[in-house]
Every structure is written in structure tokens, then in C-alpha cells.
């Protein structure tokens, strides 16, 4: 079984960044699975937890502060995910596996780097790509 990272991508920035990245025809790790969401703020914790139980890593990519399409969805997401992280630490979970990044729609190249970096840091690169 191949290592899987699921990427929850905000429709308005990260998903477009992925499209911009796609125009350059990158070679992303095989196990990376994009998953479009409307806004990081609309991502429910139940879904994140589900993803964490199934996947090797969860990447959540939303708009930079101040650029949220829905005004403050990303800030709400950050608060919520921070709380989740606290709970997970208390439960002894490996926080490495949950990563949140903020990037604008133009930063496709950076999204690619972040994905590779995530794989490297989880020690999955060899099997993954």
C-alpha cells in the first residue's frame, strides 16, 4: 500500500494554485490526492479526523489571512484546527501528519514544493514517488 496524503484545497486559492502548477506538468508524489472544498472554513472537523485515520498525512491549504473569499473562513479554520491540534497532542497523536498552509492562487510552484516537503518530512518520499 502506497503512502497517501490527502490535500484539502480551498476552491478559491489552493485549487487554483494546483491548476497553475498543473500547467507546468509537475511530477507530484503518486500518493497525493487532491480534494476540493469550498473554503477551509467549511471543512468539518469530523472530515479532517476521518482523513487523519485513513491517510498518512493531511494537508489543508487555504487563502492567506485577509484574502478569504468568504471574509474570515480561513481564520475560523485556523482557530478550529488549532483546537484540534491541542486535542490530538493530548491524545498523543503525531502532529507532523496534519499540516496547514496558506497560499494565494498564484503560488502553484510553492504548493508543489510544500507537497514534496511534506512527503520528505514524513519520510515517505522513497515509496511515494
Amino acid at each position: 500500500m502506497k503512502p497517501r496524503i490527502i490535500g484539502f484545497l480551498c476552491e478559491w486559492c489552493a485549487a487554483r494554485a494546483l491548476e497553475n502548477l498543473a500547467f507546468c506538468r509537475p511530477e507530484l508524489p503518486v500518493g497525493f490526492q487532491p480534494f476540493r472544498i469550498n473554503c477551509t472554513g467549511s471543512l468539518e472537523l469530523e472530515v479532517v479526523i476521518k482523513a487523519l485515520t485513513e491517510a498518512d498525512g493531511v494537508l489543508i491549504a487555504g487563502c492567506p489571512p485577509g484574502e478569504c473569499h468568504f471574509r474570515e473562513g480561513n481564520l475560523r479554520a485556523e482557530l478550529r484546527l488549532r483546537a484540534l491540534k491541542r486535542v490530538l497532542t493530548a491524545l498523543g497523536e503525531d502532529l507532523q501528519r496534519l499540516r496547514i498552509i496558506w497560499l494565494s492562487s498564484g503560488e502553484g510552484e510553492r504548493l508543489g514544493e510544500e507537497i514534496h516537503k511534506f512527503y520528505r518530512e514524513l519520510g515517505l518520499e522513497d515509496r511515494g514517488s
Binding site: L18, E19, L21, F23, V30, F32
Partner: peptide, 10 residues
């Protein structure tokens, strides 16, 4: 954009 162009292998 989300499958064909992100690397043939995956």
C-alpha cells in the same frame, strides 16, 4: 488539472 497533469505515474 488534478490527475492527468500532475504526473503520469500517479
Amino acid at each position: 488539472e488534478e490527475a492527468a497533469w500532475l504526473g503520469k505515474k500517479g
